[in-house]
Computed example of a mutant assay.
Amino acid sequence: MTNPIEALLAEKGVLLADGATGTNLFAMGLESGDAPELWNETAPEKIAALHQGFVDAGADIILTNSFGGTRHRLKLHHAQDRVHELNRLAAEIAVAVADKAGRKVVVAGSVGPTGELLQPLGALTYEEAVEAFVEQIEGLKAGGAQVAWIETMSAVDEIRAAAEAAIRVGLPYTYTGSFDTAGRTMMGLAPKDIHGVTDGLAEAPVGVGANCGVGASDILASLLDMSAARPDATIIVKGNCGIPEFRGTEIHYSGTPELMADYVRLAVDGGARIVGGCCGTSFEHLAAMRKALDAHTRAERPSVEEVVARIGPLRNKQAAQSGAAEGEGRRERRRARA
């Protein structure tokens, strides 16, 4: 498989991924509960504007508007029979923007979780999950996506299923977990264990890491665990823009461009090779991150205490403070409430 990310890393050292999709689409008029993927057909100019804003801000990697592009997520909008088409359109829109950037911009096909629990916790079999991801990734590849960008994952089996699907389709892949539950994913995966999730598959990942979660400080703490476990790994961090806060019925994120610029510096010092923003990260934030990245010379590896002093307090326990037993109990409580 050709690996455009590795080639660009060799050239630039550290890459800047884009910012938020959902937050920015809501600002463009997307209604809560609507499927962003349907805009690939009905409002392609808005999706193109999203990508263009991030390219103009300096992104080296842009993610397609396809996070919920499996049949399982699209069935909530009666679009389960349009998986290939909507994912192909998502990639085509992003490729058209990248192609006119005047520099190398990698188009990564966003692949989010199915929203289903795999057996034995749920009804979805591993092979059914692989088939659903194959269907999505085939559409992304047909539209020109160069990488399968598996993100915001919680379960080891679902990451493996998505990775196996990417391999079957013939795309290199990355994957990131969301460490939002006492420093672990909701299904109990610790940051230090992210590296071995796809061991034994026919192809290794291009990069692994973390995205989303609860805030910039927490994702940097996760990064320190990941880079300590595998200092040589290509690690991705794509953190939320500060902390989400409800103001009335709307969610606002506390992060300023200055905070996100310092997050980039700490991420690079902590061992990240690909840095971006997740929820709440605007074009303005990403432009500040680009400027910080370009001006930064890698410094001493920070401690969690330094991260907290510069970015703000952790909102969660760290993974070392929470155990698998605690995670199992939390999952059972969530299932009981469902």
Rank of each mutant, 00 (worst) to 15 (best):
Y175V: 04
R337D: 04
V197T: 12
N40H: 11
D225A: 15
G255T: 07
A129S: 15
K104C: 05
R335V: 03
I159T: 13
N240V: 13
F283C: 00
A145E: 00
L124D: 10
S32P: 00
S254R: 14
A228P: 01
P172E: 05
Q146N: 06
R168Y: 07
P172F: 06
H72L: 14
D269N: 15
G68P: 03
A261R: 06
G53W: 02
V105A: 12
A10L: 10
V105K: 10
I235R: 03
L38N: 05
L8D: 04
A338P: 00
E135I: 06
D218C: 09
A142K: 11
D180M: 12
R335N: 06
R73Y: 00
T234L: 01
E6Y: 07
K104Y: 01
P36N: 05
V264S: 06
G239K: 04
V275D: 01
I219V: 14
E245W: 02
A336D: 14
K12Q: 15
L16A: 05
A142M: 10
R315C: 03
S227E: 00
A79R: 13
C279K: 07
Q321L: 12
I235T: 04
A98G: 07
A108K: 08
F179Y: 15
E284A: 15
A108F: 12
T174R: 07
A49L: 11
L189R: 09
A98K: 02
E245L: 12
G207P: 00
A20Q: 02
A129F: 01
E6S: 14
G69Y: 02
S222I: 00
